[in-house]
């Protein structure tokens, strides 16, 4: 089978597993450090790194066709749009000084 040549080896899987364990230990350790406003950022960067490693190696995206790359990428792009537009709305409420119905309702 052709796929044997572009499948990851057992060694790759073990290396990926070790990396995920190290990152798990790192995120627990970092949670107890006083990182000020960067604590959340560090935790999310570590989580995103772990997720990427799982997607690329365990889920074989690295070894898949370019169509699949595009497909997966497009899916996560829509997720980013969901987060970015919603948080842009919440973050910018009140910037213009005009009372929105939301602020009137909580007053």
């Amino acid at each position: 089978m052709a796929e044997h040549h572009n499948s990851p080896t057992v060694g790759t899987y073990l290396a990926v597993f070790s990396a995920l364990m190290v990152l798990t230990a790192l995120t627990v350790w970092a949670a107890f450090q006083d990182l000020g406003p960067y604590g959340d950022l560090v935790a999310m960067v570590i989580a995103c790194t772990k997720a990427t490693v799982v997607i690329v190696f365990f889920m074989h995206v690295k070894y898949s066709s370019r169509l699949l790359w595009l497909f997966v990428g497009a899916g996560f792009l829509f997720m980013l749009i969901l987060f970015a537009f919603t948080m842009a709305d919440y973050a910018s409420r009140g910037w213009l000084g005009a009372p929105s119905s939301y602020y009137l309702s909580i007053q």
Binding site: T27, V28, A31, F32, Q33, D34, L35, G39, D40, A43, M44, I46, A47, K50, A51, V54, I55, F58, M59
Partner: peptide, 19 residues
């Protein structure tokens, strides 16, 4: 995929705001 969901749930629910 289910593993990835937990990879985000763990820091968000258990870890943030700990120190």
């Amino acid at each position: 995929f289910v593993d990835i969901v937990w990879i985000f749930l763990f820091p968000l629910l258990y870890l943030l705001g700990r120190h």
